[in-house]
Design a protein around this nucleic acid. Sequence first.
DNA 1: CATTGTATACGACTTGTTTCGTATCAAAAA
DNA 2: TTTTTGATACGAAACAAGTCGTATACAATG
Lengths: 126, 126
Amino acid sequence: MSLKQLKPTESELEILRVLWERGEATVRDVHEELSKTKDAGYTTTLKLMQIMHEKGMVKRDESSKTHKYAPLLSREKTQKQFVGKMIDTLFQGSSSQLVMQALGNHKASKEELDEIQKLIDNLKQQ
Amino acid sequence: MSLKQLKPTESELEILRVLWERGEATVRDVHEELSKTKDAGYTTTLKLMQIMHEKGMVKRDESSKTHKYAPLLSREKTQKQFVGKMIDTLFQGSSSQLVMQALGNHKASKEELDEIQKLIDNLKQQ
DNA sequence: CATTGTATACGACTTGTTTCGTATCAAAAA
DNA sequence: TTTTTGATACGAAACAAGTCGTATACAATG
């Protein structure tokens, strides 16, 4: 029953994105942030966050009237989970194919490329 | 109304995976392949593939009693779609972060690493 | 104290996905 | 020709996600 297999939905990921960024946020914080790109009512966001709380994805500080939410899933674990799944179903198990896709279609700065190169050098040494 | 915005579900991706691999397959082919890792009845797979046909995700050759299905979404386009989405929602828009994640957690062979290195060299030149 | 504004709780509706039972059809086997 | 086998079609149930209306609580303000 660990957190490992909790798989956030699309909307839950959007909320988590905000929580990861801020560390902690109220429903209104999150809702305002999401409103920039999406239009759903306040109670929709509220309900979603309540459900996430039930599922154990976020923790809730109820000490004041206005609850504060914080993520329980780490960004890293979640990234790992999704990347793994994606490599399996979409890239025939080959991480390098995913890498080529990502680098080929989405620009990265010279600095980022340098960093990746460093990582590759490291991996090759082992 | 292009194919661009068709977003395959989890189950649809599994079916597409088989179709991409084989180029063309019957419902039974697909179902047998999926049975290895999943247990759902034959008619479930059938229905799913019929719906995919309605949605325009696959084409269907009905010239013989046993229909043959083939993908209409390309693997590349679909990969691109999902990778893009993922970079946005999970990697703050940074492709290199996704790359680091993928390389860090999932082994790649020396040959693959070489290939990636070549790609990076190319990208740097521009 | 009454009103207003801002919260949470909760139930219910809508839409989409997955599942499967059953009907039907056609070709191959008996 | 009758039966059996293997295929598609189709409807409906089960489930899940997302949406929102409304009830209710409470504190700040008038």
